[in-house]
Design a protein around this nucleic acid. Structure first.
Lengths: 231, 231
DNA sequence: AATTTGTGTGACACATCCGTGACAGCATCA
DNA sequence: TGATGCTGTCACGGATGTGTCACACAAATT
């Protein structure tokens, strides 16, 4: 399964670290935020698959934050697990009514946390959005993992597919090799940066018969960009 | 979605009440029974879409009851979720061999229960009775549990049948082995992921004489896809 | 022009994934 | 009791994808 991205929203640094450690160990990619404001920034930067949201935050409470996200088109499908110190049944019910998918009460073991994270992600998967990307004749359907150039199908390896998928969801923007490794390969794998070049080449070669290799543009000294405009 | 009818078979009244409350809150219609005898009456009165069946019952055990229903033409398509206090791996395996669709172990949260009920119903949703799937010459009739390729009948084992049924209900979409285990085998069953491959093979072999094995496509690194389109 | 820096390309060893046949455990039925 | 059919697991081999390297080539810098 593809690596999942989790955002931790928690004001106490030690707990944050513990959670991050457990998640990374279980091969999730992790982002952190310590309050509502930084959480918004983190979400804007990279939409997570799941948010671990502390109930009590300085300033705006986690509950309000959750309600805010549930109202927003962009974030309403992101899974939310509430993290709370309270044992009150009231809070649990309130949390679930707000739209949290699950809750964990402190103190919790890291294995319990991971189990719940996995369960929630698995549950939200099958109904996942039927993402269908299209750009100027080149189209990619996430549900069937099919890529077609005009009428013809394009045959891609797993990494090439993920790379193209990343490009097509983020066109018209330059990414460094490091950024691409983080987001296509996963953030705690170490591979040479030049490996990106090789996969770019393979992807270009696969798209070439239909002329779509022009969409992948080299920006010397910076990285690559995906665009239908030739420039 | 139409309102679904659930029968609770459970001898302890408090647990029955808890389950009834959770189910009605989630907008299911509910019937209750406290032993095998009253369960038979309840079923005769109104055929449920799903039965929550306690493992231990006074007199006849839930397991025997399940076996009885699975043999009967009328009841064999009714989904069954076993409810058990035991954590024994043995019982889980035995229960699933009997034909239960899923398992819940006490104690369980009401949200977990609802989630599982929904999952099982979703799995067997499209039709329940008169479901008849057809794709490009390959057809599956849920009522008679018969599969035919063109004019010829195809002989399938139970798991192969459920697998094909799952595929035909969800074509043109890639599923991971984990997702397939969840939806074809049941949610908390632990079997090796490679087991999926073996059943894929058996299903392919059964479909091969008519050329329909091409419909099951391997998506390397991700899982499988069912589609009449070649690639 | 010569040098330096960055990128394209082909090759290759290696890891991973998947198809396949075999097998033992189990339930069912004669 | 033995025969049969179904299931989950394993081991093996082949197919495919992967990361890295060396070298060719292009662009910027001197």
């Amino acid at each position: 399964m593809q690596q999942k991205h989790v955002l931790i929203v928690e004001d106490e640094a030690p707990i944050r670290d513990m959670i991050r450690f457990a998640l990374e160990r279980a091969d999730f990619s992790v982002a952190e935020a310590e309050d509502a404001q930084s959480a918004r920034l983190a979400i804007a930067d990279h939409l997570p698959d799941l948010v671990l949201l502390d109930w009590m935050l300085p300033g705006m409470s986690g509950a309000e934050l959750a309600r805010e996200w549930r109202r927003d088109e962009l974030t309403q499908n992101v899974a939310i697990i509430m993290v709370t110190a309270r044992v009150d049944e009231d809070d649990r019910v309130r949390g679930l009514n707000i739209g949290a998918d699950d809750y964990v009460t402190k103190p919790f073991s890291s294995s319990e946390l991971i189990a719940r994270v996995r369960a929630v992600l698995r549950r939200s998967l099958p109904g996942g959005e039927d993402e269908c990307l299209e750009l100027d004749g080149l189209s990619l359907d996430a549900a069937s993992q099919r890529v077609s150039a005009g009428a013809d199908a394009v045959r891609l390896g797993p990494t090439e597919y993920r790379l193209l998928r990343f490009f097509m969801s983020n066109p018209e923007r330059v990414y460094s090799r490091e950024q691409m490794l983080d987001r296509v390969w996963g953030q705690n794998v170490y591979v040479e940066e030049r490996t990106v070049d090789v996969h770019i080449r393979r992807l270009r070669k696969a798209l070439a018969p239909h002329g779509f290799d022009k969409f992948i543009q080299t920006v010397r000294g910076s990285g690559y960009r995906f665009s239908s405009k030739s420039l």
